[in-house]
Design a protein around this nucleic acid. Structure first.
Length: 823
DNA sequence: TCATCCACGGTTTTT
DNA sequence: CCGTGGATGA
């Protein structure tokens, strides 16, 4: 480590350079437990990275004593690179990974302690749903109202709370037949997983905790090894993850420590005078305002109660934001301050106001997408790189309209997450071969490939094989080899034995061969690609290409990991996170959900679909804490933007094939009016024409009066309305440190505002009654001028006309509410 | 055993 | 609008 003189003449340490006092303290503090409350954009990643580098360079820790948990694999890889470049050398043995990856690593080593083997399969959601489906069918549990999604959701929730079948059965009310059936499903699901030598996503965490609790001497290996544990995004840990960290940071009992150190004479003892080994030092970083994973069991209490759980802990607040302009921050602050049960914190920046937030309301999601595309083109022409632009949305379904328009506008883009390559049927087929080869006990993979490509092995034959397996208490794979004992036809028997031979042959090479070689052998023996190529279904050509793309990926994996095994490959594929796809050098606009956006940042952000029902999402309305979590999601989206933020919505949104009228999100009016420059406000987009009060006809070019004034002016005499819009002068976004009474008053006021907002906007929607248009009709549109109807789809309220306007181009309009007149 | 057809239903967010 | 899944007929 080299020390140079800083500007103040004091010795300057590159690890601390450019840090504010709080950040410095977070890097340098040494103690048993540290909680860093880091607001959005406050440099927490940098702090965490430097803290690790500091632990290494000060020799407080060896690399192998560090376990850092990040939210994505990509974040893990970046953190590793940055630590290594900070200390100027490779840090071998350091574990930086996600919760799931770390647990897989532990489980692969220790699986044999409790009835699994190291080549276990990881069931993704689709696999576990398929298994649940079978079980529901077998038990005829649908008669009790159980569906795949209700069961998988319930099992997942139970596992996240660390309830195993036995615990559940003990507490269940067996007078309730539904509960009895559920216990049966849960039990069967658990035993099927065990029999298949498989874990589901939740098991990876839960079973690791179980392993540690059941085998203290195994836990002790990791408790002793990891002296410094660091967890990022702590606000999104669930109970199982919390417990895992709890287990890992426990001190080691004297007798366990003694057993552990016995026969290790060469190594100096780590034991305290009383014979125990002290618990590891724990650092967690989080921001309760960014907790957005309650639906998968994330528990905000983990961060709120940290000081209680770890008594001798230190808390550091990082409040200065280094990412965004003041306008963006003010909007974010104003929005989040409406969540009244939060710890107040003051985010500030010295960057300056920056540009105003741009608002836009499209007539449809296509109109919205077109605006975004046009804006991106303008920004790109102005010198902004595509890779610095991101488009966020609440649901994956929203990508369709965006993609359509982006393709037409020749904007290079990339969708993170979304429809995954690995979810395609042909890829799952080929992957099932790899899984079957890696884990011969797994019947799910085997069932999938039994008749792919077609071998004449149908459901009847499969059932006979399964029956044989159950009767002899062996795996399905074993039964395959004994197909000649089942008295099946010679053709089918031959096909089964052929498959068994193929799998057995390839399985022999699993330990030694490269993934790509294994896959190539399978493809060659099955002729899968050739069969696809020979098919007359035109889509099969694309499927063949996908399979070859997978082969290319295995080769790429082998180059990246020369020692990588088939198991490593399968693990990597199963545990990729949506954000892992982000490629900084790709030169494309990034499209992703708000959830995926967490932890990322972009120069320019488009936050789309800011509508009631979408953000907040319909589904969240009933859930306790739902709307508040949706608000945090909106907050997360806003705070990803460095310099430019666009908020957009559509007045109508097509869903499930029909068109619905959308209303602006309640969160929009929580942002002070003066921060948003409405290019087209909801008021001007939906309210014109003679049927509405004149005051609502705000012109789209009268920017200042666009939005809030647009809806607040035609209102009658709403009591308390003046108070509702009293958020000028900064009071709406400065953080009040007042007691909860004011917070409650604020919340009450908000509730009132929401109602008013809802009523207002519903009332402003134009209604053309039963106006019907025919191809060739001339129409006049308030914004687009005159045009000719080119096509009309459907009748009645859902009727959509495509109109070629003389000057504004071709537009699709919802006839019922578009501001049009028939000429 | 397999291919094709129609009816149905479902959609929040993710490892 | 889509894909899934059950039923039907060859």
């Amino acid at each position: 480590m080299t020390f140079i003189l800083g500007p103040d003449g004091a010795p300057s340490n590159p690890l601390l350079d450019g840090l504010n006092p709080q950040q410095r303290e977070a890097v340098e503090y040494r103690g048993p437990a540290l909680l860093i409350l880091a607001g959005a954009g406050s440099g927490k990643t940098s702090v965490l990275t430097r803290r690790i580098a500091g632990l290494l360079s000060s020799q407080d820790a060896w690399p192998s004593q560090i376990l850092a948990i990040t939210f994505t694999n990509k974040a893990a890889a970046e953190m590793r690179d940055r630590v290594e470049s900070l200390i100027g050398q490779a840090a071998e043995g350091m574990w930086i990974s996600t919760f799931h990856s770390a647990c897989v690593r532990i489980l692969r080593r220790e699986a044999e302690h409790f009835g699994f083997t190291k080549n276990f399969t990881i069931y993704d959601s689709a696999d576990s749903r398929a298994l649940i489906k079978r079980i529901i069918k077998d038990l005829e549990a649908d008669a009790f109202g159980f569906t795949v999604s209700s069961v998988s959701g319930k099992i997942s929730r139970l596992k996240n709370e660390l309830n195993d079948v036995e615990t559940y059965a003990r507490n269940a009310n067996f007078n309730d037949p539904a509960e009895r059936v559920f216990a049966q499903i849960f039990r069967m699901y658990t035993s099927e997983l065990q029999r298949a030598n498989a874990f589901d996503f939740d098991d990876l965490i839960g079973q690791t905790v179980f392993l540690f609790r059941a085998f203290p001497q195994v836990a002790a290996i990791y408790q002793r090894r990891f002296r410094h544990i660091l967890v990022d995004e702590y606000q999104d840990t669930n109970h199982a993850q919390y417990s895992l960290i709890r287990e890992l940071t426990k001190p080691i009992d004297a007798h366990v420590a003694e057993a552990l150190e016995a026969g290790e004479g060469y190594r100096s003892s780590q034991r305290e005078p009383n014979g125990t080994i002290a618990g590891a030092s724990l650092t967690v970083v989080g921001d309760s305002d960014q907790s957005i994973y309650a639906f998968r069991g994330a528990d905000i209490r983990n961060i709120v109660e940290f000081e209680r759980d770890y008594p001798r802990s230190k808390v550091i607040l990082l409040e200065q934001n280094y990412r965004s302009t003041q306008n963006i921050l003010s909007a974010a602050n104003a929005v989040i301050s409406n969540n009244f049960d939060r710890k107040d914190k003051k985010l500030f920046t010295t960057i300056g106001d920056g540009e105003k937030i741009v608002g836009f309301t499209g007539y449809s999601q296509h109109d919205e997408a077109q605006f975004i595309a046009d804006e991106i083109t303008t920004l790109h022409d102005g010198g902004l790189d595509y890779k610095d632009i991101a488009v966020f949305y609440r649901t994956n379904a929203q990508t369709r309209a965006l993609e359509e328009i982006f393709i037409r506008s020749a904007i290079p883009y990339r969708v993170l997450g979304g429809t995954k390559f690995y979810e395609r049927a042909e890829i799952k087929d080929v992957m099932a071969y790899l899984i079957a080869v890696a884990n011969p006990a797994d019947p799910m993979a085997l069932r999938r490939i039994m008749n792919v490509p077609k071998r004449g092995i149908g459901p009847a034959t499969e059932a006979a094989l399964q029956l044989h397996a159950d009767k002899h208490e062996q795996t399905l794979r074993d039964s395959l080899r004994q197909a000649d004992q089942l008295g099946l036809g010679p053709k089918v028997t031959g096909a089964i034995l052929g498959l068994a031979g193929l799998l057995d042959e390839v399985t022999l090479r699993v330990e030694t061969a490269k993934v790509a070689d294994i896959l190539e052998a399978i493809l060659k023996r099955t002729g899968y690609v050739e069969l696809l190529r020979a098919s007359r279904d035109p889509q099969d050509e694309a499927r063949a290409e996908n399979v070859e793309e997978l082969l290319a990926q295995t080769k790429e994996f082998n180059t990246r990991n020369p020692d990588g095994t088939l198991l490593d490959f399968l693990t990597e594929v199963t545990l990729v996170a949506a954000a892992d796809d982000l490629d900084d050098s790709s030169g494309t606009v990034s499209l992703m959900t708000l959830h995926t956006a967490k932890g990322l940042e972009f120069d320019t952000v488009f936050l789309t679909g800011v509508e009631e029902g979408l953000l907040p999402h319909q589904m969240s309305a009933g859930e306790p804490g739902g709307p508040a979590e949706e608000r945090r999601l909106f907050y997360v989206g806003i705070t990803r933007a460095r310099r430019r933020l666009y908020l957009s919505l559509a007045m109508t949104r097509a869903q499930f094939g029909d068109v619905n009228v959308a209303m602006p999100s309640r969160y929009l009016q929580e942002i002070p009016t003066e921060l948003i420059d409405w290019r087209q406000s909801p008021g001007s987009a939906n309210s014109r024409g003679g049927t509405q009060p004149r005051a609502l006809n705000a012109r789209r070019d009268s920017i200042g009066s666009g939005f809030n004034s647009g809806f607040s002016s035609g209102t009658g005499s709403g009591a308390g309305r003046a108070a509702s819009f009293d958020r000028g002068g900064g009071s709406g976004y400065g953080y009040s440190s007042g007691p909860s009474a004011t917070a409650l008053a604020r919340a009450a006021r908000n509730a009132e505002k929401k109602t008013e907002w809802t009523n207002r906007v519903t009332g402003t929607v134009r209604d053309n009654g039963d106006l019907t248009l025919a191809v060739g009709d001339r129409v006049k549109h308030d914004d687009f001028g005159e045009g000719t109807v080119k096509s009309v789809t459907a009748n009645g309220p859902k009727s959509i006309a495509e109109v070629q306007f003389d000057e504004a181009g071709r537009k699709r309009l919802l006839v019922k509410i578009a501001p049009i007149e028939k000429l």
